[in-house]
Design a protein around this nucleic acid. Sequence first.
DNA 1: TTAAACTTTCAGTAATTATTGAAAGTTTGT
DNA 2: ACAAACTTTCAATAATTACTGAAAGTTTAA
Lengths: 166, 166
Amino acid sequence: MQLDEAKNQFIQTWGALGSSWGINRTMSSIHALLIASKDPMSTEEIMAQLKISRGNANMNIRSLIDWGLVKKQFIAGERKEYFAAGKDIWEIARQIAKERGKRELEPVVNMVGELQNVEDESEDAQQFLETMASLQDFTSKVNGTLDKFIKSDKNWFYKSLMNLIK
Amino acid sequence: MQLDEAKNQFIQTWGALGSSWGINRTMSSIHALLIASKDPMSTEEIMAQLKISRGNANMNIRSLIDWGLVKKQFIAGERKEYFAAGKDIWEIARQIAKERGKRELEPVVNMVGELQNVEDESEDAQQFLETMASLQDFTSKVNGTLDKFIKSDKNWFYKSLMNLIK
DNA sequence: TTAAACTTTCAGTAATTATTGAAAGTTTGT
DNA sequence: ACAAACTTTCAATAATTACTGAAAGTTTAA
């Protein structure tokens, strides 16, 4: 297999994965492209490789920077901005966990908190509150683990995971 | 707070959460509705509660059944089908992990496996292969943990998690 | 200060995804 | 066998989300 072929394969799969996880296809394709590239790339190069417009490239590069997945790189003597993705998969996972946790876990935690003060005494209400309580238990545990993971270095996580899966 | 109000709140939030995780809003709303309901519900009732069409209701109920999140319930003397969601959050999480793992993690594992036979010897290729190797390492560990989690009962997971977060 | 080199924005449009509702299909009781 | 009660399908349509490209904005070097 040729290197280019392999890279394309990777970009494809990574892009599809992203889109089925609610991250847009272009954003994850750019991410994959940068992960697979040895050198930082300019907006122009990204546009050319993925055949996308300037606006689209720019917007998604910004999102990747917001998510902490991509960094600007200045190249001596060049005026253009270059972009590079971290290559450490653990770091990438940690970064994604952090963002998604913030954006999607927190709303649930907040909702469940508010739901505690239902006055109703019916059996129906009892059961609902029970489920909500267990949801709260669950999310707070997931949140806690996520926090540890986010603050951890690879090594800590690795050890704990090994421990977890025995 | 009224029970109905609380339930609506829950349906709303759960629906939004699903849609930002690549699951359609109606599907997660129905799921939430069934989680919050003491008794199993018919298609008619679901349609009325969420103000959605028959077709939409049917399709999404089927998806929920495919995912193993909802079960048919037969009610004595009734001809209609009734539906109920499991209320155990751990079981729900396990079910979702299982489905998503199958649908989205496996393609990555397969791709990375295939990518091993790149013949190129350049530095660029070296680096790419290194990243892919670490990706493989990562996915196989996640996969392994997921497997354990899926096969586990709540208690096993709980203990390991407690252990994990010290 | 000017203009070239580059980045960002955004209104319009395209592509994708979800929903409707009516028609076709199925099951069950008589 | 019939028809009522129910479920499923799917073509048309609506809603959402992503993308384009040109124009506006910004930075830098001379």
